[in-house]
Simulated scan of single mutants.
Amino acid sequence: MRKDAELNRQKILSSVESLIQQQDMDKIGMREIASAAQIGMGTLYRHYPNKSALCMDLVYGNLQHFIDTASEYLGCYQGNPEVALHYILSEYLVFRENNMGLLESVESNWKQGQVFYQSELYSQLVMLLTRVLKPLKPMFSDKELTFTAEMLTAMLKSDIYAFERLHKGLSQEEILSSLIKLLLN
């Protein structure tokens, strides 16, 4: 990507991050994003054909950061596998919480969801979760570990997570505790 194009992309993403601190993503329009980024509408649409694609790019960046940080932790941590599971799931819930509005926008678009499940990033997430589950489930085959990791991500999709947090009133710690019990039993 050309340097000026990358600079515009970064301006767009940082402007959106700033805007979503003030209001829900579904209330932010493309015109408002272009204005905040101080670019023209054409430039915005050259980078992102719609708001969902923009949300996807933000989520991908944030998810990559989570995966990188969690992988680094697992590379250094040599202690109790249950502690590692607690840490990784806790950080994943923080990622889900911090990106709730963005994830709802992305996950509500079925077509983009299908693209995500076939992406390298999704594979990295599943491998990370498989890696943390393996010492806790040594009797599981690779196929069973992968299935468990994929079902864990499915259980935490934005609509289910938001329902548990906002409608049922569960805290992140309560969700974490229940997930760990579910996975360890």
Rank of each mutant, 00 (worst) to 15 (best):
M1Q: 04
R2N: 11
R2C: 10
D4H: 15
D4Y: 06
A5M: 12
R9N: 05
Q10V: 03
K11L: 05
K11W: 00
I12V: 08
I12R: 00
E17F: 06
S18M: 10
S18I: 00
L19V: 03
Q22W: 10
Q23I: 04
D24F: 06
D24W: 08
M25P: 02
M25F: 14
M25V: 15
D26N: 12
D26W: 15
M30N: 01
M30Y: 09
M30D: 03
E32F: 00
I33E: 03
A34F: 00
A34K: 00
A34D: 02
S35Y: 03
A36H: 00
A36N: 01
Q38N: 04
Q38I: 08
I39F: 03
I39A: 04
G40H: 01
G42C: 01
Y45A: 04
R46Y: 08
H47Y: 07
H47T: 07
Y48K: 00
Y48D: 03
P49L: 08
S52C: 13
S52K: 09
A53H: 03
L54K: 01
L58A: 08
L58T: 03
V59A: 05
V59S: 05
N62P: 01
N62I: 11
L63P: 03
L63F: 14
H65I: 09
H65G: 13
F66T: 07
I67K: 11
D68M: 13
T69D: 14
T69V: 13
T69E: 15
A70V: 06
S71I: 11
S71Y: 08
Y73K: 06
L74E: 06
L74V: 11
Y77G: 08
V83M: 01
A84G: 04
L85P: 00
H86L: 05
H86C: 08
Y87T: 05
I88Q: 12
Y92G: 13
L93I: 02
L93R: 11
L93C: 07
V94Q: 15
R96W: 02
E97Q: 14
M100H: 10
E104Y: 04
E104K: 09
E104N: 10
S105Q: 12
S105P: 01
E107I: 02
Q112Y: 01
Q112L: 02
G113K: 07
G113C: 14
Q114S: 05
Q114Y: 09
Q114R: 08
V115N: 01
F116P: 00
Y117F: 11
Q118P: 09
Q118R: 06
S119A: 07
S123H: 04
Q124D: 12
V126D: 06
M127V: 13
L128R: 09
L129Q: 12
L129R: 13
T130Q: 13
L133S: 06
L133M: 04
K134G: 14
L136G: 09
K137E: 11
P138D: 09
M139L: 07
F140G: 15
F140M: 14
F140K: 15
S141P: 10
D142M: 11
D142V: 14
E144P: 14
L145M: 11
L145G: 14
T148D: 02
A149I: 13
A149P: 09
M151H: 11
A154E: 10
M155V: 03
M155L: 13
L156M: 10
Y161M: 07
E164S: 13
R165G: 12
L166P: 11
H167P: 15
E174N: 10
I180H: 04
I180P: 00
I180R: 10
K181F: 05
K181L: 02
L182P: 06
L182Y: 07
